Computed example of a mutant assay.
Amino acid sequence: MKKVWIDTDLSVGMKRHTREGYCDVDDGYAVLQLMKSNKVEILGISAVFGNTLIENALELSQFMSKEFADDKIPVFEGAGKALDFTNLATNEAVEAMAAALKKDKMTIMAIGPATNVGILLLKHHELKDQIEEVVLVAGRRKPTDYFAIGNKGNHARDLNFDLDNDAFRILLESGVKTVLCPFEISNKVWVKQGDLEKLAEGDAANKWLTKASEAWLAQWIDQGAAGFNPFDVLASHYIISPEDIISEELNARLELHPDDTVKDTERKAFKQYLLCDENPKGFPVTYCYDVVEDYHEKLIESLV
């Protein structure tokens, strides 16, 4: 059985703290999929800032452990902001991950900013060989591979990477096996109204998650989409059944380009991009880019 640590910015059902609307729900799908799998043992859950504030992510992590895992999965508070090299502080989550790694090798599913993982690798570098792999949701092949949401010309951020570039850099430079599940693969998977209705027929966890997904689905439909992409669930599915995920070995690097999420910048706004291709100057990663033909059926089945 694969030993897994979940590092997440859970935000299911939360209202956005920076603008109008609701937060992502896909992290809830990823956590629930792992909870329901008989192929993994979840050693712990650590909260991190990202889609929502750290206190919200922590509260939701505690809620999911208590309500859907009989409170058997310990939950820890992690970073509330990006890495600060001038005052690098550890936290409860980092020390809990370190303690777990001293006992067992494990896979880390990091589906928020990689801040906790970055701190772990800086503070406890001697434990890096205990990490079998880190699976994250980030990256693209080219800076012009836009994260298009709906058909109204809006581009989403590569949020996990954008919120802490340095944490990703630390991970890549560490040599720890890194698996990326980027927008390229998640935008080939859709959750629609009919899927929510089917999932709602399941247990209490499914009912909670589908009810919380209604507002999120409505936001996507308002953008011209027929459903929503469950980004983070591609990471959990890779951990459970990698044979369902099509990937290739590429090299990843950070590169500066105009910010594609800001319209009419006249090249005034720039940002770092996590680019993955065959450039030998990069760091090796497993880059997931497609799913098997019957993936959607397998995904719904794993949740039901």
Rank of each mutant, 00 (worst) to 15 (best):
L127S: 13
T52V: 12
D129T: 12
A89N: 14
L60E: 12
K81I: 07
N91S: 08
S46T: 15
N87S: 14
L121A: 00
E95N: 13
D129K: 09
I45H: 06
K103V: 13
D104I: 04
E95K: 08
I111W: 00
M35C: 12
A100I: 15
A93C: 02
A89M: 09
I108W: 01
A114G: 01
Q130H: 14
A79C: 04
V48H: 05
S65G: 05
L43V: 03
K123V: 13
A110K: 04
A79W: 02
H125S: 13
S46F: 06
S46M: 04
K72F: 11
Q130W: 08
G50E: 02
K39D: 15
N56L: 01
A69P: 00
A110S: 14
T90E: 04
A47M: 04
L53P: 02
D104Y: 12
T52S: 11
D129W: 07
F49N: 06
K66H: 10
G50Y: 03
A93S: 15
G50V: 01
D70S: 12
V94A: 02
N56H: 12
A98S: 13
E92I: 03
I42L: 11
A100C: 14
E59F: 09
T86S: 14
V40E: 06
N56Y: 09
N56Q: 14
G118V: 08
G78T: 05
N87L: 05
A96I: 08
L32R: 02
E77S: 09
N87M: 11
K105S: 15
T86R: 09
L120V: 06
N116Y: 01
L122Y: 07
M109F: 06
K39L: 08
M109R: 00
A57M: 01
E95Y: 03
A69G: 02
F63I: 13
E126T: 07
N116T: 05
T107C: 04
V40S: 10
Q130T: 12
L122F: 06
N38F: 09
I111T: 10
L58R: 05
K36F: 02
P113Q: 08
A89E: 15
M64W: 15
I73K: 09
G112S: 01
A100S: 14
I73E: 06
E55N: 10
M64A: 11
K36D: 07
A96N: 09
A89Q: 14
K105F: 06
A89S: 08
M64D: 09
Q62K: 15
N56A: 12
S65F: 02
L34T: 11
F76E: 03
M109I: 12
I108K: 00
E95I: 02
A99E: 15
E92D: 08
T107Q: 03
V40C: 13
T107Y: 09
L60I: 13
E95R: 01
L122P: 00
E92H: 02
V94Y: 00
G50S: 00
P74E: 12
L122T: 03
Q33E: 12
A57I: 05
D129I: 00
S37C: 07
M35L: 15
A99K: 10
G78M: 04
I111L: 03
N91T: 11
I42M: 13
H124F: 04
L34Y: 07
I111H: 03
A100E: 13
S37M: 06
K102R: 14
E41Q: 15
V117A: 01
T115D: 03
A69F: 11
T86D: 13
P74D: 05
K103W: 06
F85T: 09
P113R: 02
K66W: 05
F85D: 07
V75D: 12
N51I: 00
Q33W: 05
G44S: 14
